[in-house]
Design a protein around this nucleic acid. Sequence first.
DNA 1: TAAACGAATATTGTATACAATCTACAAATC
DNA 2: GATTTGTAGATTGTATACAATATTCGTTTA
Lengths: 223, 223
Amino acid sequence: MDGPVLSKRTMAEQVADLLRQRILLGVLPAGTPIRQEHLATELGISRIPLREALKQLEAEGFVTIASHKGATVAPLSVAEIEELFQLRLHLETWILSLALPRLTEGDFATLDQLIAEQRAPDSLPRWGELNWRFHEVMYRPADRPLTLKMLKRIHDNIDRYLRLEVSLSAGRARAFREHEDLLAHCRKGDVAEALDLLERHIQQTADSLIDHLRARETLTTAD
Amino acid sequence: MDGPVLSKRTMAEQVADLLRQRILLGVLPAGTPIRQEHLATELGISRIPLREALKQLEAEGFVTIASHKGATVAPLSVAEIEELFQLRLHLETWILSLALPRLTEGDFATLDQLIAEQRAPDSLPRWGELNWRFHEVMYRPADRPLTLKMLKRIHDNIDRYLRLEVSLSAGRARAFREHEDLLAHCRKGDVAEALDLLERHIQQTADSLIDHLRARETLTTAD
DNA sequence: TAAACGAATATTGTATACAATCTACAAATC
DNA sequence: GATTTGTAGATTGTATACAATATTCGTTTA
């Protein structure tokens, strides 16, 4: 959508985007080691821009780099995921309270459309992106760019775990309803109720995901 | 204090630490361009580890990198500084409310000592570090490592502007009193009052700094 | 047999060399 | 004179080559 159309993007940037996508889509699951030489030859580049891409992804929380030992796709512990949801809770209720009075009719139309897109049967692979854009459109009028960037990072890191859960549980249908409810209350300008709904929305998503992860955890550690 | 004593630290890491210090201490003020070749020869290394250090510092918010144009020490706008203080306000009141019931006598002793150290007449160059450690000791029992890391980043970015103001205004004396008051209320376990004090502490620091910056701004833009 | 050692291999970290891009300034054009 | 164009120099981006560190696995030894 944005991003300069006619800019000579550097190899490092392109590689960072590519790897980020692979991680977000689950092609590279948490824990996967990343061999520089191997990946560099696969991409037809040298290791230098690849290393810079990895450093970028490390800063974004997707990759862990250990000196002389290499990079791996960063795993998140259940405790860390819980903490990320708590951060969301505090930051998003704050930023929504700022944004709510400034939402325009145009914003509401965009939000309607995003919900419709999420309804499409083939939207699953874009689930994370659509979900974030819904929240982003809602928060952007708050005019807190640093906070918004932080929130995107948090969402991305959560989403690569949420993806597993959303694709096979009833969580997806629930997310629709909660987004619709939230949007309706924002339209009415009902601040208190909207904030309360958002809080419950985040909390329920967290509970559902963490239950799921705990279940998988006991499964995989029991074999 | 922490940090592995016997680890072979990589050049990139050492350079990142060095540059971070120079930026935090004001040796490299905001806007300073960083010429890779020049700095690399000064440090006696090649540009490769220097570039990785710069990427790290960019992620931490201290440096801005523009493709094919180079790195500069990142300036913060007044709006961004205000936003950072607002983030502090929300995150720190939350994390203190978690930490407060878990503060031990040992923690209180450490906090007493940190205030004493700040009193020392030669503590000015370490002001930022001491100020952060006070808050860190207070928040660590909350056991929210990701939030704490975020807060350190925010503090560091604020402090390199605050340094100017603290060194020449009466803000330093006020910070002492506020830290002492805050500590006293934490000792008594007076949650509501402690949170209120913390909120006012952050807000007043913000107001004082921003006034100062606005004054300098009108001065420098008027010539 | 199991633990400890060590050489061979694999992998990452960094220096050097070259390619791509930007910047500054002078000449050309209107 | 103002704007554009073009070229030389400066600066960054990337490939290649080598150095330093880690890992593997066979061998030795208790």
